Simulated scan of single mutants.
Amino acid sequence: MKTYSKRIIGFFCCVTLIVMMAGGCKSSGKLAYKNIAAIYNPELVLEDLNYDLFNLNDSITNLYVRFPYNKLQYSEINGRKEARYKLTWQLFQDFENSKLIDSAAYRGMDSLHTVGYKFDSIAIAVKNGSDYVIFLSFFDLNAGKQYDQWLNLYKKGPVNPTDYILTDEKGFPLMRNYVYNKEHFRIRTALNEESVMLGFNPQSMPPAPPPYALPKNVVFPYADSITAWRVSNHYSEIIQLSDEGRYNVVENGKRAFTIFRFYDGFPNIGQLTQLRQTARYIATDAEYRDLMESDSRAAIDDFWIRLTGHSERALSQ
């Protein structure tokens, strides 16, 4: 696969210096009280920077990291142009307890202007029996930019969402929980099982509501039908999902992991219907009614121009 070869090039051809610093400390208060609004600022998002977690066993979880070299800033240092970056992670019990359990920092550089992606995996020593949260910070040191992200690490139950991960046909992590039309992939599982039960729930996927807009008691059905896929050495056979909907790995009668298979281009929004639906949470009832009754893209543009007061500013929304 083309993207796979680029990642391999990025992995083997870079000149990388890695320094690891691990430690822990105690602090007080709740993580929920910290201001994390900055992570929703588009300017603080590095395009194609991806993370994923997979419970390798009861005591080790792999943190997978992937980022594109061409998004980093190359500067002249000691007579040659190079990119410098740093990744830090901090492991906490939960948002209600800011006690730091473990942390580490990794530094790297590239002087070859490597084409493609840097991909790496980091082993985190963390035992089963509890769920955790991980705070990640990626630094483009030459540009002076920092990109933050929170991840949930599930290890409390006998079966957890991070006991599963999507991979390509060769077992390389996809770094996402959705698949495309006609895409071939595998499911990697941490469990010793002979098959993965995949429940299918056909439904469309409207644009997501704002955070905390859904009631706490919302329930998504996990299966209209269930298909068994063979597993060998913790990898499923090659899977292709043709129908749109939610696909849930079902273990012991419960939903353990969800795979999304929706419209082409998901999760990006580009179709007229999707563009109109995204305005629901910031439009008045009258404005939204006018948008839904119009089949014109111009109606969407007019809405954003009125909202922002300027056509160029509207294009950035």
Score class of each variant (00 low, 15 high):
T227R: 15
V115K: 03
A286N: 08
F92D: 01
G309N: 10
V249M: 15
K26G: 13
R188P: 02
I101A: 07
E237T: 07
V45R: 15
F135K: 06
D48G: 06
K99R: 08
S232K: 15
E194G: 08
V196T: 05
R7C: 09
M109I: 05
A208E: 00
K156R: 08
K81P: 00
Y222Q: 15
Q149F: 01
E193Q: 12
Y33N: 15
G270K: 08
Y281E: 07
E293P: 00
D120R: 06
P173H: 05
L72A: 04
C25T: 14
G129K: 01
C13H: 09
S28F: 08
Y178F: 15
D163L: 04
G245R: 03
R107E: 13
E237M: 05
T278Q: 15
Y132D: 03
S111M: 15
S27C: 13
A105C: 11
S242G: 03
F172N: 14
S137T: 12
Q317W: 03
F135R: 07
I77N: 10
R289C: 03
G309V: 13
I101C: 07
K170Q: 14
L191C: 04
S27P: 06
N160L: 03
N50E: 14
Q146G: 10
F135M: 10
R313L: 14
F135Q: 09
Y154C: 04
Y212P: 01
L112W: 09
K170H: 13
D243W: 00
P210L: 09
S28V: 00
N181A: 13
N233T: 08
G245A: 11
K156C: 00
L174C: 07
H310V: 11
N152T: 02
L63C: 06
L141C: 11
G199Y: 03
D94L: 02
E169D: 09
S242E: 12
P68Q: 02
L174M: 11
L91Y: 02
H184R: 10
A38Y: 14
E293M: 00
N201P: 01
N78E: 14
Y4P: 06
P267L: 03
N70G: 04
I122L: 11
G108V: 05
I238L: 04
H184W: 00
Y222S: 15
N248D: 12
R306I: 10
E76K: 11
G144N: 05
Q90N: 09
R66P: 01
S103D: 11
Q93F: 05
S103F: 13
K182Y: 12
M175K: 11
R255Y: 13
R176I: 06
T284F: 08
A208I: 03
K81A: 08
E244P: 00
Q73F: 06
D140M: 10
S121V: 13
K170R: 14
R313A: 14
G79R: 04
L191M: 07
G144L: 04
L136I: 06
V159I: 09
V219G: 08
T162R: 01
N35M: 08
P267W: 02
L214R: 04
Q240C: 07
Y247E: 02
I60H: 01
I36C: 12
Q90F: 03
F67P: 01
E237H: 01
